[in-house]
Computed example of a mutant assay.
Amino acid sequence: MAEISKKLTVLSQIAKELNRRQITWAIGASLLLYLKGMVQEFHDIDIMVAEADAEKAKKVLLSFGKLLPAGPKGQYKTKYFWEFDVDGVDIDMMAGFTIVHDGMDFYFPLEKEQINDYTEINGAVIPLQSLDEWRIYYKLMGRTDKIAIMDR
């Protein structure tokens, strides 16, 4: 539980700065499922960002931690994808999220209108992506385990 608390503290610190700079962003993936009470843990923090704010968001994250070397892209063609280490917490930042499925590119840019849910952590407002959107993403990724969790 201490590990989760540390991750959420890091998230709240970053969130305050992203919000202060009026960056359009939202939480996705397993942290979204955690914040919605669907899973008991999450491994990293996935921050989805509007493409127009990608470079600004990168600077914010660099002010908190270090950029990690790029890993393999696999089934993704995301326009902006960076991994950061902030106090030992792995943070993935994505803008222009694109999933390759059956040889086709499925493009899912984050737009302000898609964010209609929020939570608060340590006094920081945390925008959340839609579970419906993530169900589509997981289906395209072949993540039947995550879909089963969401369907319960």
Rank of each mutant, 00 (worst) to 15 (best):
V10M: 11
M38H: 10
E41A: 12
S130I: 00
V125E: 12
A15M: 10
L33C: 10
L33P: 04
G123S: 06
L35P: 09
D102E: 15
N19R: 10
M94P: 06
D44Y: 10
M94T: 15
G142A: 06
G28I: 08
I99G: 02
K36W: 06
G65N: 08
G65I: 07
M93S: 08
E83W: 05
A15L: 09
K7M: 14
E111M: 04
Q22I: 06
L131C: 05
S63W: 05
I121T: 05
K73R: 15
I136S: 06
E133L: 15
E111A: 01
W82K: 07
A52P: 00
G88N: 04
N116K: 11
F64T: 04
L11T: 06
P127Q: 04
D87I: 00
A29H: 02
G96Q: 06
V49P: 00
Y34S: 05
L68W: 06
R20I: 00
K73V: 01
D117M: 01
D90C: 11
Y34M: 07
G37T: 02
V10A: 14
G71Y: 07
M104D: 09
W134D: 01
L67C: 08
S30P: 06
T78E: 09
D105S: 14
G88F: 10
N122L: 05
A70V: 11
I47Q: 02
K77G: 13
A50M: 00
G74N: 14
A95E: 05
A57I: 11
S12R: 11
S12T: 13
A54P: 05
V49Y: 00
S130H: 02
Q129P: 01
P127Y: 00
K79F: 09
D92I: 04
E17T: 15
A70Y: 11
Q129M: 13
I45Y: 09
F64L: 07
A95P: 09
R152Y: 03
M104F: 13
S12M: 06
M93E: 04
M93Y: 04
M48P: 00
P72G: 06
G28L: 04
G37D: 03
Y107N: 10
D85Q: 09
I4F: 04
I136Y: 13
Y118L: 05
I23Q: 06
A52E: 11
D145F: 11
H101I: 02
E120F: 08
E120G: 01
D85C: 12
Q22V: 08
A52C: 05
I27D: 02
Q22D: 14
P72D: 11
G103Y: 15
I147V: 12
Y76L: 12
K56M: 08
R152L: 03
H101Q: 13
K79S: 08
G142E: 09
A50F: 00
K59N: 15
K66F: 11
W25M: 02
F42P: 06
K66S: 14
L128R: 04
L35A: 07
Q22Y: 08
D46F: 01
W82N: 09
G74D: 15
I27G: 02
K6S: 14
R21K: 15
G71K: 15
L110P: 02
P69Q: 10
Y137P: 02
L18V: 08
Y137A: 02
K146E: 05
L110Y: 03
F81R: 10
